[in-house]
Computed example of a mutant assay.
Amino acid sequence: MSDSFHSAPAVGTTALPATVYLIAIGAFALGMASYVTAGLMPMIAGAFSVSLAMAAQLVTAFTLAYGLGSPLAVALLPARAQRSGLLIALGVFVLANGASALASGFSGLLAWRAIAGIGAGVYLALGIAAAACVSAPQQRGKAIGVIMGGMAGGTVLGVPLSLLLAQQLGWTAALWLVTLLGGLALAGLLWQLPALPAAPAISLRRKLALLADGQVLAILLVSLLAAIASLGMYTFIAPLLAWSANGMAMSATPFLWAWGVGGIVGSVLVGPWADKVAAPKLTCIILLLLALALCALPLAAGWSAWLMLAPIALWGAAGWALQVPQNQRLLAVRARQGDGNLAIALNESALYLGSAIGAAMGGLLLLLNWPMWLLAAGAALVATAALLLQWPAARRT
Rank of each mutant, 00 (worst) to 15 (best):
A125S: 11
L224E: 03
P137E: 14
A198E: 10
R336D: 15
V324Q: 12
V216H: 03
W243M: 08
L90A: 07
S49N: 14
G141W: 01
K281L: 15
F48D: 09
P311V: 02
L292M: 06
L95W: 06
S230F: 12
C295F: 05
I147C: 11
G302L: 04
A249K: 12
G158W: 01
A301Y: 05
L189K: 10
R206W: 01
L289S: 13
A47Q: 05
I344N: 15
L364G: 13
A132H: 02
Y123S: 15
V268M: 15
A321N: 11
A278N: 12
I237N: 12
L204M: 13
A61I: 03
A376P: 14
Q139G: 15
A296Y: 02
S162Q: 07
L22H: 04
I237V: 09
G232R: 01
L196D: 08
A55T: 10
A201C: 10
I312F: 06
G150L: 09
T235R: 07
A185Y: 02
A132P: 00
Y66L: 15
W257D: 10
V222D: 09
N369C: 11
P272E: 13
L52V: 12
A103C: 14
G158C: 10
G154F: 03
L210T: 09
G362M: 06
A345E: 02
I228R: 01
G183E: 03
A61E: 02
S84P: 00
I285Y: 06
L126I: 04
W370F: 07
S251M: 05
Q390V: 06
S223C: 10
S135L: 00
P392D: 04
A96N: 05
F48L: 03
A185L: 09
A8V: 04
R83S: 03
G182K: 04
G358H: 00
G183D: 03
L58Y: 01
A116M: 06
A383Y: 03
T283R: 12
G358M: 02
G85K: 06
A227C: 08
V50R: 07
K281H: 10
S223P: 02
W370N: 12
C133I: 09
G150D: 10
S100V: 01
S267V: 08
L196Y: 01
R140G: 09
A111H: 09
A356I: 02
S2T: 07
